[in-house]
């Protein structure tokens, strides 16, 4: 399994990188950590004529934490997030979800940008992004534009990124104090892509009722998405056994899981309900 032939460029600036993409169109692919892209090339499921390596592009590995939230540069790696002193406090859901991603060696190379841009339906970060209303920054020949996570993921390996654009950053809005949250996934083995997973958060109003419930689900469709019906059952209600059960039931009916050799659709449907239930219990406890 040797890679198909391609050219390689490691431009020094974002402008150069964008220019290379613009010049080569769909024949070029962006390389960051390579932990998802290189297996695709090894299986010859893609045959780009040029790989544009972002390794020298400045500032793409930044992790910025501020009053307005957390911004991760596209080249920041799972190990960077894991080791970042302030991130777990600034965005506990993001930090927790990251712990489930892949294995030690992959985590040392795998990047935020790669996970988002290659858009595996079971990948963790895209699920957190949709649950948290994250905003993605794309750089193209005409400058930058921002796309909401809800509009970014279009299907397996399909996103809103144009062939001449590069994903440069993802921004997670500020995390209020006392926010309730949980991340739950079920994978066959540690580090595997999950059969399904749930990232959720909500706040409590003065009466102790849930508001702004956000539940993102992965592995249950061709893309990560929110469970609006389940959210609706919870908003304005106390988080107790009855409402949790109702939300889980709603979740299981609003997903349309794929059927594959890892699991049948009805299993994934039931699994989503279980994970929603467990995540809500965890968040409430």
């Amino acid at each position: 399994m040797k890679f198909p032939a391609f050219d390689y460029a490691a431009p020094d600036s974002l402008d150069e990188a964008v220019a290379l993409l613009a010049a080569h169109g769909e024949d070029a692919m962006v390389l960051a950590g390579g932990q998802s892209l290189m297996p695709i090339l090894a299986f010859r499921m893609a045959a780009p004529s040029l790989l544009v390596d972002l390794k020298k592009v400045p500032a793409l590995d930044r992790i910025d934490i501020g009053a307005e939230g957390v911004t991760l540069g596209a080249r920041s790696r799972w190990c960077d997030i894991e080791r970042h002193a302030g991130l777990a406090a600034a965005h506990p859901l993001l930090a927790e979800a990251t712990r489930h991603i892949a294995h030690y060696q992959i985590r040392n190379r795998g990047t935020v940008g790669g996970s988002l841009a290659l858009a595996d339906p079971a990948a963790e970060l895209p699920g957190v992004a949709v649950a948290c209303d994250a905003l993605l920054t794309l750089a193209g020949p005409g400058g930058e534009r921002h796309v909401a996570a809800a509009e970014f993921f279009l299907g397996p390996m399909t996103t809103a990124i144009a062939p001449d654009e590069i994903l440069t950053a993802v921004h997670f809005p500020a995390w209020p104090e006392n926010r309730r949250w949980a991340f739950q996934e079920f994978a066959r083995r540690k580090g595997d892509f999950a059969l399904a997973g749930v990232a959720l958060h909500y706040d409590l109003d003065a009466q102790g009722r849930a508001r702004d419930m956000r539940i993102g689900v992965i592995g249950a469709s061709d893309r990560p998405h929110r469970l609006h019906a389940a959210e609706a059952t919870m908003n304005g209600s106390a988080v107790d056994a009855a409402t949790i059960a109702a939300a889980a039931a709603a979740a299981s009916t609003e997903v349309s899981p794929m059927e594959d050799h890892h699991a049948p659709a009805d299993y994934r449907r039931a699994l989503v309900a279980t994970l929603v239930e467990r995540a809500l219990q965890e968040a409430a406890s």
């Binding site: 390389l31 390579g34 932990q35 060696q105 992959i106 190379r109």
Partner: peptide, 11 residues
């Protein structure tokens, strides 16, 4: 620690 099968020599 990294996987050398997923890294290019030129990288």
């Amino acid at each position: 620690a990294v996987r050398s099968c997923l890294t290019l020599a030129v990288q």
